Amino acid sequence: MRKIVVHMAVSLDGFFEGPDRDIGWHRVDDDLHRYFNEYLATTSAFLFGRVTFELMDEFWPTADDDPEVPAPMGEFAGIYRRIPRIVFSRTLAPTGPRTEVHREVDPEAIRSLQQQPGGDMTIGGAKLIDAFRQHDLIDEYRLFVNPVLLGRGRRLFDPADVPRDLRLVESRAFGNGVVLLRHERVRPG
């Protein structure tokens, strides 16, 4: 069964973006980008909310056309073009190749997607992550904790009424100070 994996950068105080959607504090160097690429190349789908999709799709499809783009970023551009994208939006019109639009998060439809063959599906976008969390659809969290305290911005996780048990399965410190914390969802039974 394909897992649904949160793959996000956060500040030490839990923000995924600063004021005015600032992500300039993300410490993604070539080493960390290569690590991202190694994992993301094995995935079978990117699950995005509209805002995240539009930000990603604005840059990545042609990023490797720029000779100034570092090699790991150029490599990711190819990965981005190859991996199908499922966008959850009530307003977005169906768009280009390898992109499918879903109007809502339907837990049964998501579970059906998980039964299809292929690698993990990564999810991005705080609102979409929250919707998937509410339905207990997330199997793994890969949080890349950046060595910065933002103090304000948008938190990755909204408050939730139901606690979810997690198990740490990996931690890794990168040379730039970013620490990966990888947790799996502990399911009852």
Rank of each mutant, 00 (worst) to 15 (best):
M1L: 12
M1I: 07
K3W: 04
I4C: 08
I4K: 08
V5W: 00
V6C: 13
H7T: 13
H7I: 09
A9P: 00
L12E: 13
D20V: 06
D22E: 12
R27I: 00
D29R: 11
D29Q: 09
D30K: 13
L32F: 06
R34S: 06
Y35W: 14
F36E: 01
N37Y: 05
N37V: 03
L40W: 08
T43Q: 10
S44C: 04
F48P: 08
F48E: 09
G49I: 12
G49F: 09
R50T: 02
R50H: 06
V51I: 15
T52H: 13
E54F: 04
M56Q: 15
D57R: 13
D57G: 10
E58P: 01
A63L: 14
D64T: 06
D65H: 13
P67H: 10
E68K: 15
E68G: 10
P70F: 03
P72R: 02
P72Q: 02
E75I: 07
A77N: 04
G78I: 05
R82F: 01
P84N: 04
R85Q: 11
R85G: 08
V87E: 07
F88G: 05
R90F: 01
T91K: 00
P97S: 15
P107L: 12
E108K: 13
I110Y: 02
I110N: 02
I110K: 00
I110L: 04
R111F: 02
P117Q: 06
G118A: 09
G119P: 09
D120H: 07
G124K: 02
A126G: 12
I129P: 14
F132S: 10
R133D: 14
D136F: 07
D139F: 11
E140A: 11
R142E: 07
R142Y: 02
L143Q: 12
L143W: 12
F144N: 02
P147R: 05
L149N: 01
L150I: 11
L150K: 06
L150T: 12
L150A: 09
G151T: 06
G153V: 04
G153F: 06
R154W: 00
R154P: 00
R155Q: 13
L156T: 05
F157R: 03
P159V: 03
P159T: 07
V162K: 14
V162L: 04
V162S: 10
D165Q: 14
R167G: 00
R172M: 08
R172P: 03
A173M: 06
F174T: 05
G175N: 09
N176C: 13
V178L: 04
V179Q: 05
V179N: 05
